[in-house]
């Protein structure tokens, strides 16, 4: 039980920490394209860790498998890259300033 609790707490805090790092990247990095990196990677793993924690928690406390959290993981892992790609295309289309280096020719 001790090990389970430790694992769960670790997953919860790790999920929240990744979310925080993603948002810190969004707030801190210098241009629109670098800002996209934080949310598109870190928040995906963040919500993945948290959903996994929820899956373990409900499976243990209810004593029956609770697997619908997998839906959240799969859904977010599929949709986050799509929205990041579309937002990046919009940023390229609007010719937003690029910090260091040059924008690709259209």
């Amino acid at each position: 039980m001790r090990v389970k609790e430790f694992l769960l707490s670790f997953l919860i805090v790790a999920g929240a920490a990744f979310c925080f790092l993603g948002s810190l990247g969004l707030a801190r990095l210098p241009d629109t394209f670098t800002r996209l990196h934080g949310p598109s990677k870190a928040t995906t793993l963040g919500i993945g860790c948290m959903a996994l924690a929820s899956l373990v928690w409900f499976t243990v406390t209810r004593r029956e498998p609770s697997v619908h959290e997998l839906l959240v993981i799969v859904f977010v892992a599929l949709t986050t890259p799509i929205s990041a790609h579309m937002v990046a295309r919009a940023a390229l289309h609007r010719r937003l300033p690029v910090w260091r280096g040059e924008a690709p020719p259209q």
Binding site: T32, I47, T80, V87
Partner: peptide
């Protein structure tokens, strides 16, 4: 575009908080 990314991040954080 930055604001759209911010909204995107906000809702994912809200999802995680709800979990």
């Amino acid at each position: 575009v930055d604001r759209v990314i911010a909204i995107d991040t906000l809702y994912i954080n809200a999802c995680t908080l709800l979990l």
